[in-house]
Design a protein around this nucleic acid. Structure first.
Length: 106
DNA sequence: ATAATGACTGAAT
DNA sequence: AATTCAGCCATTA
Protein backbone atom coordinates (compact mmCIF):
# COMPACT_ATOMS: atom_id res chain seq x y z
CA UNK A 1 0.00 0.00 0.00
CA UNK A 2 1.04 3.58 -0.38
CA UNK A 3 -0.21 7.02 0.40
CA UNK A 4 -1.39 7.38 -3.18
CA UNK A 5 -3.44 4.20 -2.98
CA UNK A 6 -5.13 5.52 0.14
CA UNK A 7 -5.97 8.72 -1.71
CA UNK A 8 -7.43 6.84 -4.66
CA UNK A 9 -9.54 4.73 -2.33
CA UNK A 10 -11.20 7.90 -1.05
CA UNK A 11 -11.60 9.66 -4.37
CA UNK A 12 -13.26 6.58 -5.80
CA UNK A 13 -16.08 7.07 -3.26
CA UNK A 14 -16.90 10.63 -4.24
CA UNK A 15 -20.32 10.43 -5.93
CA UNK A 16 -21.12 11.96 -9.31
CA UNK A 17 -22.33 15.54 -9.12
CA UNK A 18 -20.38 16.19 -5.93
CA UNK A 19 -16.91 17.57 -5.22
CA UNK A 20 -14.38 17.33 -2.41
CA UNK A 21 -11.08 19.02 -1.66
CA UNK A 22 -7.46 17.92 -1.38
CA UNK A 23 -7.45 18.90 2.26
CA UNK A 24 -10.69 17.05 3.00
CA UNK A 25 -9.25 13.86 1.53
CA UNK A 26 -6.09 14.30 3.56
CA UNK A 27 -8.22 14.71 6.67
CA UNK A 28 -10.17 11.55 5.88
CA UNK A 29 -6.82 9.78 5.81
CA UNK A 30 -6.00 11.11 9.24
CA UNK A 31 -3.40 13.55 7.92
CA UNK A 32 -5.10 16.95 7.85
CA UNK A 33 -1.88 18.68 6.77
CA UNK A 34 -1.17 16.48 3.77
CA UNK A 35 -3.41 18.33 1.32
CA UNK A 36 -0.49 19.14 -0.91
CA UNK A 37 0.61 15.52 -0.98
CA UNK A 38 -2.88 14.55 -2.12
CA UNK A 39 -2.31 16.72 -5.16
CA UNK A 40 0.96 14.90 -5.73
CA UNK A 41 -0.90 11.59 -5.70
CA UNK A 42 -3.48 12.71 -8.26
CA UNK A 43 -0.70 14.06 -10.43
CA UNK A 44 0.59 10.53 -10.93
CA UNK A 45 -2.68 9.31 -12.41
CA UNK A 46 -2.43 8.08 -16.00
CA UNK A 47 -4.50 9.99 -18.55
CA UNK A 48 -6.71 6.97 -19.06
CA UNK A 49 -7.41 6.57 -15.37
CA UNK A 50 -11.02 5.78 -14.54
CA UNK A 51 -10.77 7.50 -11.18
CA UNK A 52 -13.05 10.58 -10.81
CA UNK A 53 -10.08 12.87 -10.16
CA UNK A 54 -12.02 15.82 -11.55
CA UNK A 55 -14.27 15.83 -8.48
CA UNK A 56 -11.32 17.04 -6.40
CA UNK A 57 -10.89 20.82 -6.24
CA UNK A 58 -9.23 23.30 -3.89
CA UNK A 59 -10.81 24.16 -0.55
CA UNK A 60 -11.55 27.63 -1.89
CA UNK A 61 -13.94 26.05 -4.38
CA UNK A 62 -11.96 26.67 -7.54
CA UNK A 63 -10.33 24.33 -10.02
CA UNK A 64 -6.72 23.80 -9.06
CA UNK A 65 -5.35 21.47 -11.71
CA UNK A 66 -1.92 22.25 -13.15
CA UNK A 67 -0.98 22.69 -16.74
CA UNK A 68 -2.54 24.70 -19.51
CA UNK A 69 -5.77 26.63 -19.40
CA UNK A 70 -7.29 23.80 -21.39
CA UNK A 71 -6.83 21.45 -18.50
CA UNK A 72 -8.96 23.62 -16.26
CA UNK A 73 -11.62 24.02 -18.91
CA UNK A 74 -11.64 20.26 -19.34
CA UNK A 75 -12.10 19.56 -15.64
CA UNK A 76 -14.82 22.18 -15.42
CA UNK A 77 -16.62 20.64 -18.37
CA UNK A 78 -16.51 17.21 -16.75
CA UNK A 79 -18.04 18.64 -13.58
CA UNK A 80 -20.71 20.69 -15.33
CA UNK A 81 -21.62 17.56 -17.27
CA UNK A 82 -22.50 16.05 -13.88
CA UNK A 83 -24.52 19.05 -12.80
CA UNK A 84 -21.94 20.91 -10.73
CA UNK A 85 -22.43 24.66 -11.13
CA UNK A 86 -19.84 27.42 -11.01
CA UNK A 87 -20.54 31.00 -9.98
CA UNK A 88 -19.30 34.09 -11.74
CA UNK A 89 -15.94 33.82 -10.03
CA UNK A 90 -15.57 30.23 -11.16
CA UNK A 91 -16.22 28.85 -7.71
CA UNK A 92 -18.34 25.92 -6.58
CA UNK A 93 -20.79 26.22 -3.68
CA UNK A 94 -19.75 23.74 -0.99
CA UNK A 95 -23.21 23.89 0.54
CA UNK A 96 -24.77 22.52 -2.61
CA UNK A 97 -22.09 20.35 -4.19
CA UNK A 98 -19.76 19.49 -1.35
CA UNK A 99 -19.51 15.74 -0.78
CA UNK A 100 -20.53 14.92 2.77
CA UNK A 101 -19.19 11.44 3.35
CA UNK A 102 -21.29 9.66 5.91
CA UNK A 103 -20.04 6.68 7.84
CA UNK A 104 -20.89 3.27 6.42
CA UNK A 105 -22.02 4.68 3.11
CA UNK A 106 -20.51 6.05 -0.04
C1' DA B 1 20.47 11.48 3.51
C1' DT B 2 19.55 16.20 1.25
C1' DA B 3 17.17 19.28 -1.64
C1' DA B 4 13.82 20.68 -4.92
C1' DT B 5 8.96 20.41 -6.49
C1' DG B 6 4.02 21.29 -6.66
C1' DA B 7 -3.47 19.29 -8.87
C1' DC B 8 -2.74 22.71 -1.03
C1' DT B 9 -4.21 25.90 2.90
C1' DG B 10 -5.28 29.37 6.11
C1' DA B 11 -3.94 33.71 7.64
C1' DA B 12 -2.38 38.29 6.63
C1' DT B 13 -2.28 42.32 3.45
C1' DA C 1 -12.31 40.07 -3.78
C1' DA C 2 -7.37 39.41 -5.14
C1' DT C 3 -2.38 38.52 -3.78
C1' DT C 4 1.25 37.09 -1.05
C1' DC C 5 3.33 33.89 2.05
C1' DA C 6 5.05 30.51 5.30
C1' DG C 7 4.14 25.86 6.75
C1' DC C 8 3.24 21.03 5.23
C1' DC C 9 4.16 16.47 2.85
C1' DA C 10 4.77 12.58 -0.38
C1' DT C 11 7.64 12.21 -4.54
C1' DT C 12 11.49 12.48 -7.19
C1' DA C 13 16.19 13.53 -8.49
Amino acid sequence: MSFSDDVYRIVRRCPKGKVTSYGAIAAMLGKPRAARAVGTALRELPDDSRLPWWRVISSSGVISISGTVNAKAYQRALLEREGVRFDRAGKVDWEKFGWKARRGED
